[in-house]
């Protein structure tokens, strides 16, 4: 049994998203294992980013359930009851389940602790690298500043928290190799560094699940390699599970533990990288062959 079956962190069930008449995602179910790097792949227009937008609350799915676990595995038994209840969160004995489809985008990040990056990088260009990382720690800092009141009056409690948040930012800047550029505007960074900064910024929200939308797009081979190291370290050192959309097969095959393949909004394959690589349906989808030819290819692969 693989980890995504024994220790699921996120369960997507029967997810369907329609825009007017267009069905972008059709009855999609998959799980993300705790501690896994899960890749969501598929040809252009397969609906991958839409899945991301549903998970992170930017779109409200037409149908389906997206559940995330904090704490013990046993909490999954409570899922039917959590669904029956009206709330977005179901807690029991220190563990909890979050029903992400019921939450607006900012709450998904603030409470359910799912962070994301964007296909077209969305940094705060006119703010410095350090400020970008501080904005990511907005919610705890807001609390420490007493919703700004204590902060204006200059209470020392806030100063301490601000110092801690700068230390955290420094830790991440070290990790992504941008410590020397901390005081430069984010918009001045080269493309690859902007990608890394966006990942670090997402990590500053202390997520349990990090969703990356094409993190390797536009990177050169060396930067791509650095990205692999960073993602592995996020998984092992930080204990954050990673869900990523990627086109670069070398990245997908090398670092992911679990691959889910989408085509036209439907799941066509799900398994370990080697299993997926050998799946004739996947090959057909990527090469763009007709359905009746799939059998021929299957026969070819088998021989």
């Amino acid at each position: 049994m693989s980890r995504w079956q024994t220790q699921p962190l996120l369960e997507v069930e029967h997810l369907t998203m329609r825009f007017g008449g267009l069905v972008a995602i059709n009855d999609l179910s998959f799980t993300v294992g705790q501690g896994d790097i899960t890749a969501l792949i598929g040809p252009n227009g397969a609906g991958k980013t839409t899945v991301f937008n549903c998970i992170t609350g930017f779109y409200k799915p037409t149908e389906g359930r997206i559940a995330l676990r904090h704490g013990e595995q046993s909490i999954w038994q409570e899922l039917p009851r959590a669904t029956q209840a009206s709330g977005r969160k179901w807690a029991k004995g220190g563990s909890s389940l979050w029903l992400l489809e019921r939450m607006p985008d900012f709450e998904v990040s603030a409470h359910a602790k799912v962070a994301r990056t964007f296909q077209n990088i969305r940094l705060f260009q006119g703010m410095t690298v350090l400020e970008n990382l501080l904005v990511a720690q907005h919610n705890p800092l807001m609390l420490a500043s007493g919703w700004s009141v204590l902060g204006i009056l200059g209470f020392s409690g806030y100063k301490k928290s601000e110092k801690a948040s700068i230390e955290k930012a420094t830790y991440w800047l070290d990790k992504i190799g941008l410590i020397d550029r901390a005081d430069d505007p984010a918009g001045d960074l080269p493309y690859g560094a902007q990608r890394r900064l966006e990942i670090a910024r997402a990590m500053c929200t202390d997520p349990v699940l990090l969703c990356l939308d094409e993190p390797a797009a536009g990177l050169n081979p060396r930067e791509s390699l650095e990205l692999n190291t960073l993602l592995r370290s996020i998984r092992t050192d930080e204990g954050t599970s990673v869900l990523l959309i990627e086109h670069d097969m070398s990245v997908v095959m090398e670092i992911s533990d679990h691959v889910v393949v989408l085509d036209y909004g439907t799941k066509i394959s799900d398994g370990s990288p080697s299993e997926v690589k050998a799946d004739p349906k996947v090959i057909a989808a990527y090469l763009g062959v007709e359905d009746d030819e799939v059998e021929e290819i299957e026969a070819e692969v088998a021989s």
Binding site: S109, A115, R122, F124, E131, L134
Partner: peptide
């Protein structure tokens, strides 16, 4: 900082839990 971040990119702000 959140105000200025909002001016820069509202969607990114929401993704950071603001």
């Amino acid at each position: 900082r959140a105000w200025e971040a909002l001016r820069e990119d509202e969607i990114a702000c929401r993704s950071l839990g603001i």
